[in-house]
Design a protein around this nucleic acid. Structure first.
Lengths: 222, 222
DNA sequence: ATAGTACAGCGTACGACGTACAGCGTACGA
DNA sequence: TCGTACGCTGTACGTCGTACGCTGTACTAT
């Protein structure tokens, strides 16, 4: 027995490698498919070996969330505040769409990781430099994050991804469940949206732009 | 052996009773504390008895989400659209604060239950009657729901509940982790907000009112 | 060269989980 | 009186997180 070459890797383990592989596994199979044994298997290691790098599965999940935050673009400093906020919000939404499990995990983990904190600092900095007061910057922060999380959550619960999927879904599975006399407005909406080639992916930009525009006059230096 | 009086109830089981008790248990102990065995115990029954009323735990979770939707107030019909939407949004936020586990569950369950559909229909009806076009009503729906879910999620991840908790938390646990040279803006915010007796519970109303005001001019009949 | 120590990784075991399956006692129609 | 259907349950299986104690290797001090 003894140390031997791993099948899935060219080197020993590390917290970094463990967490990154965990994110990949969760992306592929969902959080429910992520077990310490399966993760260890993917790393070519024994289950208990992981506990040399992570104190518990809880800590692993915390670290995974922080990896997700690391992927989100920080607001660029060289543009106006609206463009900067739009960029980082769009990036955040993309990242959350790539890792849908993350949104469901956040509810239960209450201690922000370093990447999360760095992110928060950068966003606050951008807002303050744009002329928002401390209190107003806090408001804006909450509101913008609510948009990101809210839309991400709603998109995650949608049973379809693209405009075409939506059309198929609506006609095949959704509408037949909705008797028109009980749900006249939902029927009206579904019919009209399918006819217009509606794409739910555009919803986010509508909300984000509306919020950004509404925040603009609340800057002290506006 | 045979049928005998249950300890926790005065009658036999039913899907209703099972699901309601599951919600109670989740409220008390969190989703992770909700197991079929413990739920059965709380109902004074054997674990496998539950499967006569729910096909699987997945179905139980779906049903629990729908119970949550049932608790949310529908928009009243006799007022202007803004008041109606504000009422139901506030109600939704309260309900989600009462059942924090619900927000984390939604990500994974993609089929809306009857209460969810009824709710959606009522909100859409309110918006359409207020003069929003089909497309604009859809936009408004997404945006308002994003607010509700987004704020609910952020509040759930906060490690404190009240303004006093916030002050204690910030000074004892949060700030010491944030070196002022790395996180100048977060330090500034925390200090200023603690001094002002900041209460995060007020955030939601700020975002909601801002969004409602920004939607107002988008009505066709405005 | 030798002994000692630290460390990365693993095998086994335990209690709890979701649930398939094969019962059980009771109530009721014939 | 008997059958049969129904509400309910105990047992068992595979999987989960993880406590514990053991390996073999690498490095340090002598």
């Amino acid at each position: 027995m003894g140390k031997q070459r791993q099948v899935a890797s060219d080197a020993g383990l590390s917290k970094q490698r463990v967490v990154v592989e965990a994110v990949r596994l969760a992306d592929r199979e969902g959080v429910d498919g992520l077990s310490m044994r399966r993760l260890a298997g993917a790393l070519g290691a024994g289950a208990m070996s992981l506990y040399h790098y992570v104190a518990s599965k809880e800590e692993l999940l915390d670290a995974m969330i922080d990896v997700v935050f690391e992927e989100i673009e920080l607001p660029p400093e060289e543009t106006d505040w609206q463009s900067a906020m739009r960029r980082r919000a769009v990036s955040a939404r993309q990242v959350l769409a790539r890792h849908p499990w993350a949104i469901g995990l956040m509810e239960s983990r209450t201690t922000p990781g370093p990447a999360n904190l760095r992110h928060h600092e950068a966003v606050t900095a951008c807002l303050r430099r744009a002329g928002f007061s401390v209190l107003m910057a806090t408001h804006a922060n909450w509101l913008l994050d609510s948009c990101v999380y809210g839309y991400a959550l709603q998109e995650a619960t949608l049973p379809f991804d693209t405009a075409d999927d939506f059309a198929d879904m609506a006609e095949d599975a959704y509408l037949p469940q909705l008797p028109p006399d009980q749900f006249p407005y939902l029927n009206e909406s579904a019919a009209a949206l399918v006819a217009a080639g509606y794409d739910p992916a555009e919803e986010f930009m509508f909300g984000l732009d509306l919020v950004l525009a509404a925040l603009e006059p609340l800057r002290a230096s506006a």
